[in-house]
Design a binder for these strands. Structure first.
Lengths: 131, 131
DNA sequence: GTCATGGTTGACGTATACGTCAATTCGGGG
DNA sequence: CCCCGAATTGACGTATACGTCAACCATGAC
C-alpha cells in the first residue's frame, strides 16, 4: 500500500491554510513533506501533525512550543532513555492542559454569572418599561 | 471610602507584568487608570480588567478580541438596547468558551492515550532488558 | 544640593507568524 | 510552440505585542 499523499494545494483546501503557512511550518521543522523533485507531498503523518499544530494555535501555544509538543508525540527509536524523557514531557504537558481546562471552567462559570446578572437587569428594566 | 489604588510598580509586582505592557494596554484602551498629574493610579476596576486580559492571553485571544470581551463585561448605561446587545455577545462568547473546553478535553484524552502507549512500550523494553 | 527611586513620554528595535509579489519551472492541452 | 495551472524559491512587507533606551520630572534621604 503506497502511502496516500496530498499536494500543497490539497492540504490548503483540507485544512483551510495558505501555502505560505505550510512552507513556514516546514521551515520551522514542524512538517517534513516528502520531496519529489521540487514538489512537496504531504503524508498522513504530516496531516496528523498539522491537525495538532492548528489545535495548538487555537489554545494559544507558539509554534516553538508546538514543535516541542510534536517531538513529544514522536516515539523515535524507542530506546528506554528516550521513552522516559518523552513520558516525562508528556505528563508535564498533561498537567498544563488540565490546569488550562480548570481555568477555562472557572472563566465559563464567571461568564455565566455575568449573563445571569445582565438577564436580571433586563428583567427589571422590562418590568419598569412595561409597568 | 476612597478607592484603594495601585501605582504602576505595584501593579507590575502584583500581576508579574512590565510597565511597558500596562501602558500598551492603556494605549489600546484595555485599561484606563486615573491620572493624577502625570502619574497613573490603577483602580479595582483596572485590576479586575487586567486579570481578564492576562487570562484571555493565556487562552490565545488577541488584545483586540480581549478588548471586545471587556466591553462585553461592562453594563454601561444599563439601557435595554445595550443590555440586550451585551447579552447576545456574552452568550456568543459563552458558546465559544464551551467549545474550546470540549476541544481541550479531547486533546487531553488523546494525550492520555499517548501516555498509556509510551508506558506500555517502556514496560516491554523494561522486561526485555530485565529478562 | 544631589542622589537614588520611581514615574513620565517618545521613538526606535525585535520576535512571531505569516502576507505578498516577482521570477522561474514543470507538465499537459490545444 | 505557446499558454495555463500549479508548484517552487527568494525577498521584502506587515500586524501584533511588547522590549529597550534616552531624556526628563518629582520626591524623600542624606
Amino acid at each position: 500500500m503506497t502511502e496516500q499523499t496530498y499536494t500543497i494545494g490539497e492540504m490548503c483546501r483540507a485544512f483551510d491554510v495558505t501555502p505560505r503557512a505550510l512552507r513556514f511550518y516546514e521551515q520551522k521543522e514542524l512538517l517534513k513533506p516528502i520531496r519529489e523533485g521540487q514538489h512537496r507531498h504531504y503524508t498522513a503523518r504530516d496531516r496528523a501533525r498539522l491537525k495538532l499544530i492548528l489545535r495548538g494555535k487555537r489554545f494559544g501555544f507558539s509554534l516553538a512550543e508546538i514543535r516541542e509538543l510534536l517531538e513529544l508525540y514522536y516515539v523515535g527509536d524507542g530506546q528506554v532513555t528516550q521513552l522516559s524523557a518523552t513520558l516525562d514531557a508528556a505528563e508535564k504537558h498533561h498537567v498544563e492542559l488540565v490546569e488550562k481546562r480548570e481555568e477555562l471552567t472557572s472563566a465559563i462559570a464567571e461568564l455565566e454569572e455575568h449573563i445571569a446578572l445582565v438577564k436580571r437587569l433586563l428583567a427589571e428594566k422590562g418590568h419598569r418599561a412595561a409597568g
